[in-house]
């Protein structure tokens, strides 16, 4: 295996880690307004309380790894998607602020305003991530100079909007299962209905997106044609998704959540495997695409970074596991809570 491929996979691991972890807390945010009372909303917030900013670190590190391993890709995407990137960051800032400030004052208006800010910014963040993914699948206009020659409105094409909605749906599904896992009593029983509804929403979006992909973006299927054995993976995905309502029915909430994590990971794999070996597909001039072999850092840098990753990533996984272990179990509200 060459270093370019290793870094493509490592980048995929970081972004998949981000999708699985921040995916559920974005989903909790997207569902926030469905919780009725102040107590329920605080339970939702505190279920992600100790972990949400650690989850965002996966994005920060993914961004750093992209910059270090594929600087041209980082430069082209950040400058080309300028407004989308900043909209996304503003949403993430608003989310952070809303989580931090909502429960600091008792006023109903104060809390309701932050509740809306938290929900809207969570939905928009997930949606914008989806729009970016959609454009990477569809392809964006690049020139021979590796620069983006499209417009912001061009990023909002129908396919990208569809992936945007699908990402919102998958986060809602993932988040609702997380809330089921972290709550008890009446509220817990009510959230179980959200899981059913959000699975239905996700499946509708997923089927629509898959059909659109097969019809309009045939290059995403090319790698599967070359390696037909890998058709097992989308099938595994369907089984995992089908397993979620089953586990929920048997009240095995943690297994349901694990299935959902698995589904998230497979969705990210399908995306990565589909675009491989390109990172940014150029459409309409595929010869200008940015790929992992021509647009990476030098082999020396990739090698040094691999050493850094081999030292650092086991530590990161150890921290993550121990934090989640320490904060396992049902959420309750005490004097340290949000």
């Amino acid at each position: 295996m060459d270093l370019h491929l290793i870094w493509f996979i490592l980048l995929g691991v970081l972004l998949t880690g981000y999708a699985i972890l921040d995916g559920f807390d974005l989903g909790v945010g997207a569902l926030h307004l469905f919780a009725r009372t102040d107590r329920e909303r605080r339970l939702m917030l505190n279920s992600i309380g100790p972990v949400w900013d650690g989850n965002e670190v996966w994005l920060v590190t993914g961004g750093g790894a992209l910059f270090a391993a594929f600087p041209d890709v980082y430069a082209t995407l950040a400058s080309g998607f300028y407004l989308a990137v900043y909209l996304l960051i503003f949403c993430l800032i608003f989310r952070a602020v809303a989580i931090e400030f909502r429960s600091k004052r008792p006023g109903a208006f104060w809390r309701r305003s932050w509740d809306v800010a938290f929900c809207v910014s969570s939905i928009l963040s997930a949606f914008l991530f989806g729009v970016v993914i959609g454009n990477l699948i569809w392809g964006v206009p690049l020139g021979a100079d590796k620069e983006f020659h499209g417009t912001f409105l061009g990023l909002l094409n129908p396919y990208a909007l569809l992936t945007g909605l699908t990402v919102v749906a998958v986060c809602m599904m993932h988040g609702s299962i997380y809330v089921v896992m972290k709550t008890q009593g009446d509220f817990h029983d009510r959230v179980r209905d959200w899981v059913r509804n959000s699975i239905i929403f996700f499946v509708i979006m997923y089927v629509t997106l898959t059909m659109a992909t097969l019809l309009y973006v045939p290059h995403m299927v090319q790698n599967f044609k070359d390696y037909p054995l890998l058709f097992i993976i989308p099938i595994a995905n369907l089984l995992l998704i089908a397993n979620i309502p089953r586990e929920i029915y048997h009240k095995k909430d943690f297994l349901a959540f694990l299935s959902s994590c698995g589904a998230m990971a497979i969705l990210m794999f399908l995306f990565g495997f589909g675009i491989f070996p390109d990172l940014v597909l150029s459409n309409p001039h595929p010869e200008f695409s940015l790929n992992i072999y021509q647009d990476s850092s030098s082999l020396a840098t990739l090698h040094i970074m691999l050493i850094i990753a081999m030292i650092g990533m086991p530590l990161v996984v150890a921290y993550t596991v121990s934090i989640y272990w320490i904060f396992r179990g049902k959420v309750s509200i005490d004097d340290h809570s949000y």
């Binding site: 750093g64 910059f67 270090a68 600087p71 850094i308 993550t320």
Partner: peptide
């Protein structure tokens, strides 16, 4: 970029994780 990525791997995870 490599310094920035090292910052993420070595510093931010440590800080944000244990701050919880």
């Amino acid at each position: 970029g490599s310094a920035l990525a090292a910052e993420g791997v070595f510093a931010f995870f440590l800080e944000s994780g244990f701050l919880a």
